[in-house]
Amino acid sequence: CAAMMQGQTSDWKIAGPCTFHRVVLKNASPHHYMKVHLELEDNSNRLSAVELKHFIIAGLKNLHGEVGAALNFDVLKYDEGSLTALLRVHSSGLVKLWSSLTLLGSYQNQSCAFRVLQVSPFLLALTGNSRELQLH
């Protein structure tokens, strides 16, 4: 299946610009992207991007052990003001990362929770959310 997908994508690259070329990629997305928001009991508390990543790695280690702690994921973007982050993870690690975020319940002895706002195999899909359309 992987070889077939490789073949399809290489066909895609060499196809001439004027011919019609269609490629269907099924379950081929290498990464998944998550938009998450951290809710803290004390709103005045702020984390830097590095602290946030450390915190998530600690959660992965608690739930999945050393193998979980070695999971590769990226903090693509982080807004300290709103405590909202864009994460990228290999598709095979999505369930482990998501479950760790769900079970992370305290940060420095204060209650906290991760809200998963959007999940998609396409980063472009996280650039807009129709539920945020506010009309006054």
Binding site: P17, V23, L25, P121
Partner: peptide, 22 residues
């Protein structure tokens, strides 16, 4: 299996606008 993720599908098409299959 913890390494499974939700199914996804991407359909890509490339052609000229003049192409009848466009």
């Amino acid at each position: 299996d913890l390494s499974r993720c939700p199914r996804n599908l991407l359909v890509c098409e490339r052609s000229s606008f003049q192409n009848e299959k466009n």
